[in-house]
């Protein structure tokens, strides 16, 4: 949507700078939408995760050397070969859906934690 199409006054209505105030008509995101998180510094865009993925969740990034694009996040099985077979430690890690993060209790202190 071009700036010209924004009704008068609305582009300036939001907080922050002018660029942040541009509002797009976006559909809702598919959730869970982020089954893995890439460390953009560690990932070399080698696409081994794209190769091994059981569900074809990713596609290669059109920009060479960048992390793959998560095209079908809701199809992820969270099986982990993308992490297991990644040649760059920490470049990709699983990001469990919020509603499936298991809790635990530390015996000595009684503190509670979660994934």
């Amino acid at each position: 949507m071009a700036m010209d199409d924004v009704p008068p006054g609305q582009a300036e209505a939001g907080p922050g700078d002018a660029a942040a105030a541009v509002v797009f008509a976006t559909p809702n995101a598919t959730t869970p939408g982020q089954p893995v998180v890439f460390d953009t510094a560690a990932c070399t865009g080698c696409n081994i995760c794209v190769y091994v993925c059981l569900e074809d969740v990713f596609i290669p990034n059109p920009i060479k050397g960048k992390p793959p694009v998560i095209l079908y996040p809701e199809e992820c099985w969270y099986c982990g070969p993308c992490v297991e077979d990644c040649p760059h430690e920490g470049a990709i890690r699983l990001n469990h859906p919020l509603q499936q993060r298991v809790r635990w209790k530390r015996k000595a202190t009684g503190e509670h934690f979660r994934v």
Partner: peptide, 25 residues
């Protein structure tokens, strides 16, 4: 086990789970 190696052992360890100290709900 395939469904636990990365999703459970690796991921929970990264979150701080320690089988010698913690009890999993």
């Amino acid at each position: 086990e395939g469904k636990t190696r990365i999703p459970v052992m690796h991921t929970y360890a990264q979150s701080g789970f320690d089988p010698e100290r913690d009890m999993l709900q």
